[in-house]
């Protein structure tokens, strides 16, 4: 298990290999469909993603009596929908960790290699565990514009466990697993 703590350095991120288990700590921010669309349309980001983490997540967040926020459920959402936008986001912001589920395309893999970023797979459906790893909600952007599920939430996380699914050396675990399982599938059909 490799521990990563914000700010995430290029050296640390480039040392990661597909298949490594990681524990993410410190500041991460969410962004999904509307956030990516806003960015692609030339919108100005309200915060600096350099050496940061972007989490594809639409959390269920409730307001505490004292006005602070609490995350009730917060698993990853499917990442492929952001494929058209992610390479530019990585190149222009200097983000180091993309966290989601299901993986992303070859262009995103190329951007990871070029800029020194990785794609981390969080466990799909593990809403309670993810909520548990989020120790504090430190800020929120675009709450009015995008709504709670699509806003850019800023979280403090502790021991948020993920697996490196796409590294900065051009390796995608998803592509490897699919190619291997396809070989086995063909083998079984030949029987």
């Amino acid at each position: 298990m490799t521990t990563l703590t914000y700010p995430f350095s290029e050296v640390d991120v480039r040392a990661l290999k597909a298949g490594d288990a990681v524990s993410v700590n410190g500041l991460i921010r969410t962004g999904r469909d509307r956030f990516h669309k806003f960015f692609a349309d030339g919108g100005k980001l309200p915060c600096d993603f350099r050496d940061g983490a972007l989490f594809h997540c639409g959390p269920v967040v409730v307001k505490n009596p004292d006005g602070s926020w609490r995350v009730v459920a917060g698993g990853p959402t499917t990442s492929v929908r952001e494929n058209p936008y992610e390479p530019a986001f990585i190149e222009q912001t200097g983000v180091r960790l993309i966290i989601g589920k299901g993986g992303m395309d070859a262009r995103t893999l190329d951007a990871c290699a070029k800029c020194g970023a990785v794609y981390l797979q969080a466990v799909g459906g593990a809403a309670a565990v993810t909520a548990h790893a989020i120790t504090r909600v430190t800020n929120v952007y675009f709450l009015e514009e995008f709504g709670a599920a699509e806003a850019c939430w800023e979280f403090e996380v502790k021991d948020f466990r993920c697996v490196v699914a796409m590294d900065s050396h051009g390796t995608s675990l998803f592509a490897q697993v699919e190619a291997a399982s396809n070989r086995r599938f063909r083998e079984l059909l030949a029987k």
Partner: peptide, 21 residues
């Protein structure tokens, strides 16, 4: 992944919150 899943199952049951969002 499986450890995380099992931890999630226990947490959701204890808190009475959804297993998945």
């Amino acid at each position: 992944v499986l450890e995380t899943i099992l931890k999630n199952v226990a947490l959701a049951r204890a808190a009475g919150t959804p297993v998945c969002q």
